[in-house]
C-alpha cells in the first residue's frame, strides 16, 4: 500500500514545479498551464486527505468543484488572450495602413 506521505510529497513537487513555471515563463498561455499544475497538486492533496484523514467524500466533492473552476478560469483567460491578440494584430495592421497613406 502506498502511504499518505508519498502522495503529499509528489503533490508538493508538482506545486513547486508550478511555482517555478509561474516565476520563469513569459507566455500567458504557458503561465496558465503552470496554474493548472498548482490546481492539480491541491486536488491530489484533497483526494488523498479525503481517503486517509476524513474517511468521507468531502475532499472529493471539493476536488470536483475545483475542476469546474479550473475550466471556467481557463475559458475566460483564453478568451482574454484571444481578444488581446486580435487587438494587437489589429493595431499592427492599423500602423501598416498609416504607413501606406
Amino acid at each position: 500500500m502506498i502511504p499518505l506521505e508519498h502522495y503529499l510529497i509528489v503533490s508538493a513537487a508538482l506545486f513547486s514545479v508550478g511555482v517555478f513555471g509561474i516565476l520563469t515563463r513569459r507566455n500567458a498561455v504557458n503561465v496558465l498551464m503552470c496554474i493548472e499544475l498548482i490546481f492539480n497538486s491541491a486536488n491530489i492533496n484533497l483526494v488523498a486527505f479525503s481517503r486517509f484523514i476524513e474517511g468521507a467524500l468531502g475532499g472529493q466533492v471539493f476536488a470536483l468543484l475545483v475542476i469546474v473552476v479550473a475550466a471556467c478560469e481557463a475559458a475566460v483567460a483564453l478568451a482574454i488572450v484571444m481578444s488581446l491578440y486580435r487587438i494587437t494584430k489589429q493595431v499592427n495592421l492599423d500602423k501598416a495602413a498609416e504607413l501606406k497613406g
Partner: peptide
Amino acid sequence: ILTLLLFGVMLTNRIYDL
C-alpha cells in the same frame, strides 16, 4: 481544458508574448 489550451497556443503562438 487542454483542448482549449491547445487552441489558444495554436492560434496565438509566438505572436503575443505577455
